[in-house]
């Protein structure tokens, strides 16, 4: 049935989009709002996902399945937060680019540990049991197709819910006095310290909270994909999230959402391009034929994506939204408020 094809195709992308946006939002807290430049966010995401996978595979599921499934979310958050604390406390002594490299190194270490640990399934990864579908089939007695539909709808709701929850937590945090302290650290660390902001406390808080939310996204991802492997949490995945944050505007939640949707959706839309759209990109006589290498628009997306990053950084380093937020109320207000001053770099 046509409805099923639509549901499974777009539902799949909707779930992954939700995970991506959640991750980008929590990275924006660290990189955008607090100005700590982390390149290791994929590591926290991976820790959450692996925690879920280990919990659901190592312990006997079956009847306890649904309970373990529910437990996987707080436990993944906890594991990632612990990791965030472990990395954050020593690394936060570093500034700017040094912090970026240290967190990048941390992400690679985690991946390396997973590759070499037989408990974590080495490079083969771990499979996660499909708790939701099993429950729908066995407890509710649905047939296979209905269970698949139910599972997809469940995960769409879950993913959207997690993204919304992440947004809510972060928005409320940033609207509080704590939020102003965090922004103050980004704008001028020395001044913030002189005004009595406890730098270490807030930096660790930001790192741990960001990591915990990434772990939550990891739990959704692992449960939905039902498979985790070290290569899903590599540097490139981290860069994609980072680019979303940079393009949306470091310090703007709505900007992150807009950029997340754009960057996630564009390659999906490009995959609809007819197969005859092949662009000759390179002349390589070793490849046989007439020597011209052809690529489809979807393949070229990666190249376009990199160019987009460079162009945005060169022309509009503050991203689409800068540090402003989009709000409907502001659109309908009579007198537009004075534009907030851009944060100095």
């Amino acid at each position: 049935m046509d409805f099923d094809r639509l549901l499974f195709f777009w539902g799949h992308h909707f779930v992954l989009l939700g995970v991506t946006v959640s991750l980008a939002l929590s990275l924006n807290l660290i990189n955008g709002f607090c100005g700590l430049f982390s390149l290791g966010h994929q590591g926290f995401w991976g820790v959450g996902a692996y925690m879920t996978a280990v919990l659901l595979t190592v312990l006997p599921s079956g009847e306890a399945g649904l309970f373990l499934f529910a437990l996987s979310f707080p436990l993944s958050m906890f594991a990632a937060a612990l990791c965030g604390l472990f990395v954050g406390v020593p690394c936060l002594r570093l500034r700017g680019d040094y912090l970026a490299i240290a967190t990048l190194g941390f992400g690679e270490i985690l991946r390396n540990v997973a590759i070499n640990s037989s408990f974590l399934g080495t490079s083969q990864g771990l499979s996660v049991p499909n708790v939701i579908r099993t429950t729908l089939e066995q407890t509710f007695g649905l047939n296979r197709l209905d269970a698949r539909r139910g599972e997809m709808i469940f995960y769409m709701l879950l993913s959207a819910g997690v993204a919304a929850l992440t947004l809510l937590i972060l928005r409320n945090l940033m609207r509080s006095a704590h939020g102003r302290a965090i922004t103050a650290i980004r704008d001028d660390e020395t001044a913030a310290e002189l005004l009595g902001v406890n730098l270490t406390r807030y930096k660790v808080l930001v790192f741990v909270l960001g990591a915990a939310l990434a772990g939550l996204a990891g739990a959704v991802y692992a449960n939905y994909q039902r498979y985790v492997s070290p290569n899903q949490f590599g540097f490139m995945q981290g860069v994609t999230i980072l680019v979303i944050v940079v393009m949306g505007g470091m310090g703007s939640f709505t900007g992150t959402i807009v950029a997340g949707v754009l960057i996630y959706a564009l390659p999906v839309l490009l995959s609809f391009a007819p197969g005859t759209w092949q662009v000759p990109v390179f002349y390589d006589p070793t490849q046989g034929g007439d020597g011209w290498v052809h690529r489809s628009p979807k393949d070229l997306w990666q190249v376009f994506f990199s160019i987009l990053l460079i162009v945005v950084v060169l022309l509009r380093p503050q991203g689409i939204m800068g540090t402003r937020e989009f709000s409907l109320a502001a659109l309908f207000r009579r007198k537009p408020p004075a534009p907030p001053k851009e944060a100095g770099a």
Partner: peptide, 20 residues
């Protein structure tokens, strides 16, 4: 640093799409 990251990605992706 972001611009450098972009150049790095561009050269990698361009390489993958041209020479394979």
């Amino acid at each position: 640093l972001l611009s450098a990251l972009g150049v790095s990605l561009l050269l990698q992706n361009l390489g993958q799409q041209t020479v394979g």
